[in-house]
Design a protein around this nucleic acid. Sequence first.
DNA 1: TATTGTTATACTCTATAACTATA
DNA 2: TATAGTTATAGAGTATAACAATA
Lengths: 172, 172
Amino acid sequence: MNDLTGKRKPGAERKTSRTASQPAKNDRAEDIRLGILADYIGFHLRMAQDASFRAFAHHAGMRDLKPGRFAAMTVISNNPGVTQAELGRAIARDKSSVTPLIQELEGRGLVERQRSPVDRRSIALSLTAAGEETLARLTAHAVEHDRKLDEIVGDQKAEFINLLKKVADALA
Amino acid sequence: MNDLTGKRKPGAERKTSRTASQPAKNDRAEDIRLGILADYIGFHLRMAQDASFRAFAHHAGMRDLKPGRFAAMTVISNNPGVTQAELGRAIARDKSSVTPLIQELEGRGLVERQRSPVDRRSIALSLTAAGEETLARLTAHAVEHDRKLDEIVGDQKAEFINLLKKVADALA
DNA sequence: TATTGTTATACTCTATAACTATA
DNA sequence: TATAGTTATAGAGTATAACAATA
């Protein structure tokens, strides 16, 4: 089912004829053999995530977006009062990575922080009105972006997401 | 089909009871709502890729592995004489990112570079004997790692990879 | 003019470790 | 002892731009 053997002939010179258009667009093919990589889930996972990330960033003009911010804000919006530690676990990031992220959002007036009266070590997060507005705008962008992905996967979306979740959970 | 509305009650204090075990393990759940994220292909793509990457790196002991090196070496092995530009396109990386990667591999005696007699701008890449040996060893690790993924996706592997490829290609 | 490869540079993301304040 | 959050720091990965050589 997999081509692990066939190697390209060394002597065969191939002139590159594809236009570069953009930095590292998915311009592969040329006739490059991926070998065992072709059957590698991990490899394709990386290629797909990479393409998705670039498209997302590009689509939003790279202005205020950034997938990480969007995810964090969505979680906060849906879980007002969530702590930084909880947020970190939800998006699989260390707490030391969450700190600067929240600081940026707070600095931009999108997130509010409030010491929990119950456990004074932790900080309850919530979006400001401006934060909710911004999130709504970002969501509109994101929805449009994901629509492309939806078209691509079609009616297999639920199945696709389910597989992705299983991978993430199983390897956790 | 998706819960875009339900927000957690702000007042509800939740004590964190999960062990941290490791940095950012997939310890989510707690009862955090992902909102629109739950239906987002891009988000799950990132979570799955992230988990896969960590597991891969961890499994190989982080010694000499690194997914990027493995992918590059596999491509070179399967395409002796491939140029750096072609390699970059195959793995979706800019040529300026390929240079240091190849330099490292060459420095470790795993890759050989040879000016193409046909097009003297480009450099033909190939693995040394030591490179092939190393690749074989890495492949053994990688195969074992991907086996876990195989178990997870089961008989839907072909379909899964196909979807990932479509995503990568369509967004290129 | 366009492409290959190199270099210099800078940016983003992330983690580790050490620290404090709480629990 | 363990957890929440901060800070300092470092590493990995990547891209942009400019350049020389070649096409």
